[in-house]
């Protein structure tokens, strides 16, 4: 299990990285935490001509407050997300979901930007980005653009990133008052790829009804998905078991063809998506109520 030959570069700035991307052509790949890419290299399932290692670019690892929300550098490690007080205060959903990414040793290497750019349909963080209405900055040698998470994830391991672009920043708007969030997933073992995962954000109105529900799922389709129909079902309702049940049914009927493999059939994943939706929504609502009291 040794990788095929490749050229290796370790630039120190984003500008150097984008120049290298241009020079090295289509077969070059960016290396962030390497927790997905290196196994693919070792199995020779990926055979890039060049690896451009981003780990020396200090400017990509940061967490800043902005407008009640956060801006995060793409090289922020998952272990940092789990422990950072600012993230915990402003986006506890990210902390909760990061904890489900692999195992501690993996999380000390794996990065937020790497997970998003790799776009594994089973990954937690892309679904969280959908639920939090995140936006991403993509930079190339010719400039930069900002894209909504909803437009970024295209399919299994497919994103809106063009060749020559580096995902540099993740923007997370702040949550409205009286909001609570929850991330739940089910996997065969702790740290395994989820068979289904649900990210839920509930924002309550003054009268205690649901002002806004945001719900996104991983591992139940070709890409992370936002459960729009279920969100509509919840709008204006009282946060109770009946509401969660209705949302769960909407999610289940919304799922077209969940993946099927030796760890879980499509039917079972669909079933789990319903159960986890109900539980995640209830937990998020409980937290929203608690945030107010």
């Amino acid at each position: 299990m040794k990788p095929a030959r490749f050229r290796y570069f370790a630039p120190h700035t984003i500008t150097e990285a984008t120049q290298l991307l241009d020079e090295q052509g289509d077969e070059a790949r960016l290396l962030a935490g390497g927790q997905s890419l290196l196994p693919l290299l070792n199995l020779r399932l990926a055979r890039p001509s060049a690896l451009i290692d981003l780990n020396e670019i200090q400017a990509l690892a940061f967490i800043h407050p902005r407008d009640g929300g956060l801006v995060l550098g793409a090289l922020t490690r998952d272990a940092t997300l789990e422990r950072d007080p600012l993230v915990a205060a402003r986006q506890p959903l990210l902390v909760e979901a990061a904890h489900y990414v692999g195992h501690p040793a993996i999380r000390h290497r794996s990065t937020l930007g790497g997970s998003l750019a790799h776009a594994d349909p089973a990954a937690e963080l892309p679904a969280v980005m959908l639920a939090l209405d995140a936006a991403f900055t993509l930079q190339s040698s010719t400039g930069s653009r900002t894209i909504a998470a909803a437009a970024f994830f295209k399919g299994p391991f497919q994103t809106a990133l063009q060749h020559g672009e580096v995902l540099t920043e993740i923007h997370l708007p702040g949550l409205p008052p009286r909001s609570g969030s929850a991330f739940l997933e089910f996997a065969r073992r702790e740290g395994d790829y989820a068979l289904a995962g649900v990210a839920a954000v509930i924002s309550l109105a003054e009268d205690g009804t649901i002002a806004q529900a945001r719900l996104a799922l991983c591992s139940v389709g070709p890409a992370p998905l936002r459960a729009a129909a279920a969100e509509t079902v919840l709008q204006g309702r009282h946060p109770d078991e009946a509401a969660w049940q209705a949302a769960a049914e909407a999610v289940v009927s919304e799922l077209k063809e969940p993946p099927s493999d030796i760890h879980g059939s499509a039917d079972y994943r669909r079933h789990l998506a319903g159960v986890l939706t109900r539980r995640a929504l209830a937990l998020a609502a409980q937290r929203a109520e608690r945030s107010h009291s």
Binding site: H103, R188, R189, E190, G191, D192, I262, H263
Partner: peptide, 8 residues
């Protein structure tokens, strides 16, 4: 895919 029990 071959799932050994882990510490958890």
């Amino acid at each position: 895919d071959y799932l050994l029990p882990s510490a958890s």
